[in-house]
Design a protein around this nucleic acid. Structure first.
Lengths: 175, 175
DNA sequence: TAAGATCGTCTGTATGACAACGTATGCGGG
DNA sequence: CCCGCATACGTTGTCATACAGACGATCTTA
């Protein structure tokens, strides 16, 4: 237990080399992302997650609240009062779907669109700050790999997201 | 608002290309990691976070509960009942520090060490499953970049972790 | 010794997630 | 048309969890 701080050429627990725990690095990244983004958007309804909801809404691919919730991996009852707050803030609207009057189509208002564009600029800066340890081309590699990890997951593959097509297209056809 | 689903060659909101939102991909990865790891460790005290606590404890670099908590980005009061549960499970011990009798040195018991080694094997498999969309060498690149992102963060730089040294050494001197 | 800071613990509170039920609607069989 | 069943959404209640604040014990400095 005291030979951990010996040379470092051999870890006696995990023979995978001297790299740090994957879960810890992931946690650090997520915390930094949440803290930085929380600092950027002042009174925005639900912080970083609210922003992602607005991004998904503006994407226009998700037909109803349930699809939206599954896309973001949150409970549908949570999505209810999440959308509620967005409606109160005048950022989105619940529209009735004439084809299925049970479902609500969530669309961004003009104010929501402006807010989203503004936040996207701020979030781009946040991402740069969070990834400050990487060179610009390394960030591209990291983002691309992260996108493939997310899009290759069963969660993304199971539902018809339409979001990962662009990535696969970019990675398969382009660079 | 309806031209979003037009050609796709130009996004009128974000001029950064067709890649998916960074926060969303990050969220997908974290969710998969947590779900898969939660499935692996049955009755382990606090899921993936508990595992990371045990990893940090076994590392032996963190002198007391507060350092442990800061390392993992959680509150010190949370760390209290987190360690409590580990003690109840017989995985760690609270030892008095003769140099500072306010602080408690947290050490892993023999049972805790065995459990950790076992879990590390399981977690390695979990990581492979989560990163299944990447080729083996791509996973290495992804892990290395993620480590640098985490270790280059102000959170990691502010405290003397001693954990990122190996990574920097690996990246600076080795490959 | 005395004052202030720090580490750990305890308590209360608030925030958040989830389960269960209810309502409205769509779908299919008689 | 009517009936049972499934789905989408909302509401309520319950529970876990995080965090703020206060406290005792201890270290440090004067």
């Amino acid at each position: 237990m005291m030979d951990v701080m010996s040379n470092g050429s051999a870890l006696h627990i995990l023979p995978a080399g001297p790299q740090e725990d994957f879960g810890w690095t992931l946690g650090v990244l997520v915390r930094n992302y949440q803290n930085s983004s929380g600092a950027v958007m002042g009174g925005f309804p639900h912080g970083a997650r609210g922003y992602q909801v607005l991004v998904a809404v503006a994407g226009g691919e998700l037909p109803n609240q349930l699809a939206l919730a599954q896309h973001l991996g949150i409970d549908r009852t949570v999505m209810t009062y999440l959308i509620d707050d967005f409606v109160k803030a005048g950022l989105v609207e619940r529209q009735l779907n004439p084809a299925d009057r049970r479902a609500r189509i969530i669309v961004a208002t003009a104010r929501g669109g402006e807010m989203l564009a503004e936040l996207q600029r701020s979030m781009a800066q946040v991402e740069d700050v969070v990834l400050a340890a990487l060179e610009p081309d390394e960030r591209k590699v990291f983002r691309a790999l992260l996108s493939r990890v997310a899009c290759g997951s069963p969660e993304a593959a199971g539902s018809e997201l339409g979001a990962c097509e662009a990535v696969e297209q970019m990675l398969g056809g382009g660079a």
